[in-house]
Amino acid sequence: MTMPLEPGQIEVAFTLNGREVVVVVDAAARLLDTLRYQLGLTGTKEGCGEGECGACTVCMNGNPVNSCLVPIFQARGCKVETVESVENEAVFALLGSGGTQCGACTPGVVMTVLWIVKNRDVLETHSVRELMAGNLCRCTDYDGIINGVDRAAATGGAG
């Protein structure tokens, strides 16, 4: 066992970007806080804290979720993937299509995009636009993002 916990703290073990991690955190922390302030993975951004903008999107057990709405205790035993796991090649398509401008929504956008690319069968029932509706962007008209997904999906993920 590890060190005794301070009052209000809990220990949580989960898989983060393919590695097992164990963190001791405030029981009231969100997954987002833990990633950013405890583990130093600041790629994931907080845009609104209410699940609307999707800037904090990470993949949890294979699905995109807003990490601002996940209490850290619910990450126990889960597989979490963040933008830090993303390789340059995977996002070339978005770079070329003008899918990023200021970059604040971008990490969340990338996580949703790559989830779509990995699960292409969702495109049988959904348009890319519908799937991306949970990622608000204030710089683009989303076209660069949509085109980036289309391009990436066409080439199977790499740019």
């Binding site: 699940g51 609307e52 999107t57 699905n63 995109p64 979720v65 799937l131 509706a133 949970g134």
Partner: peptide
């Protein structure tokens, strides 16, 4: 279900 928030909300 498809109108509840967006995918990130629907998945949770």
């Amino acid at each position: 279900a498809r109108t509840v928030g967006a995918v990130q909300i629907q998945s949770r």
